[in-house]
Design a protein around this nucleic acid. Structure first.
Lengths: 193, 193
DNA sequence: ATGTTGACAGACAGACCTGTCTTGTTCAAG
DNA sequence: CTTGAACAAGACAGGTCTGTCTGTCAACAT
């Protein structure tokens, strides 16, 4: 499965998949676009064309649906990143190309920041574990690239890059992609120098 | 007025100020701690010991109360920053001391990230203008320091520092202050080098 | 043919939401 | 002393929230 940029913004229009898939895809789109609390079960019911009993058969609580959404989101985002950077021949090039890849994401229609940052900001400390787990896996992926690129101190290096990535996501969300592009590029250049 | 770190986390216990102040201080604490949507009017009523009619006399809608909260938050946060860094003799020292000041904030009891990032993440594009205005004023303050320190390209420099600051706030919120401290310090060292 | 399974449709419960309104009290200015 | 503003307490309206429950229907296996 290769995840495209539009998959990250929202799913396709209206598939005639089974009820569970329709619920999850609709929740995916609404949760990301409008937030967790702002999205009610009734709206997910209406827009997915599914009976309420069917939703609660597959997802016993709204919390369970949120967690399923975050799991899918994590898988798709990581998959998109790998696909987007698959053409890079070396780990060094992979790292150097990361800012451009993120810039593509920031400019994608429907971009509304990081679902995990937003989710964590919304529900606070009682957030599902995936909100923080996603960031850890991204940090590990970046650290692996640093190690494979033969950089000294890959752990610190990855932490520095992740700090810049998080900052760029927030900047792009609040001020637009243009506000994040150049600073992110410069931050990467400095860390990888 | 000098704003202390505990003022940023939540106001004092229960003053016998007038009704408007009690409402605003209670809203300040609850909105920051639990989020905008999660905090209902009834709870603000109950914890501030104020009649509902009194609340609605001073703040015609919840939205107006949210905007008043963000205004106060902005003023207090900027005031805290100036106070915290007032001892720095030069603009260069002011900039160099910023990471330590932020680290203090990250370690303050009740720290739950940036109220403006969180607010923007929660309500999305219909967010009050103050959510983005706060960041612009902070960027201007940093840019001024860069200019006064005689650094070349103060605009770009400030944008780079702000990116690191935003990233550090998010990292500290999700993983704790320790995860943000060293990367933020290194990012500042590189940009100011 | 009969029973099972999944889905649709929607009423319903109980809680909570924002916002309005009523009633009674306190207190201070005219 | 009177008048009016600010306030406390809380009922109330109308809506939305999550989650449960009752029925009906179609597909499919036995």
């Amino acid at each position: 499965m290769t995840t495209t940029l539009t998959d990250l913004a929202g799913p396709g229009p209206l598939p005639d998949q089974d009820a569970r898939t329709r619920v999850l895809e609709t929740a995916y789109r609404l949760f990301y676009r409008h937030g967790l609390r702002a999205t009610g079960i009734d709206r997910i019911i209406a827009e997915s064309g599914v009976a309420k009993a069917s939703l609660y058969r597959h997802f016993p609580t709204k919390q369970a649906l949120i967690e399923a959404y975050l799991d899918v989101r994590h898988a798709r985002w990581m998959d998109w990143l790998e696909t987007r950077l698959a053409a890079q021949a070396s780990a060094a090039q992979w790292l150097a190309a990361l800012p451009d890849a993120l810039d593509d994401w920031f400019r994608a229609p429907g971009f509304r920041g990081c679902a995990f940052i937003n989710g964590h900001a919304e529900v606070g400390s009682e957030a599902p574990p995936m909100t923080v787990q996603h960031k850890r896996e991204l940090a590990q992926r970046i650290e692996r690239a640093c190690r494979e690129a033969g950089l000294a101190g890959p752990g610190d290096r990855a932490a520095d890059l992740l700090l810049a990535v998080e900052g760029a996501i927030v900047r792009a969300q609040m001020e637009g992609a243009d506000a994040a592009r150049a600073p992110l590029q410069r931050a990467f250049s400095r860390v990888l120098a």
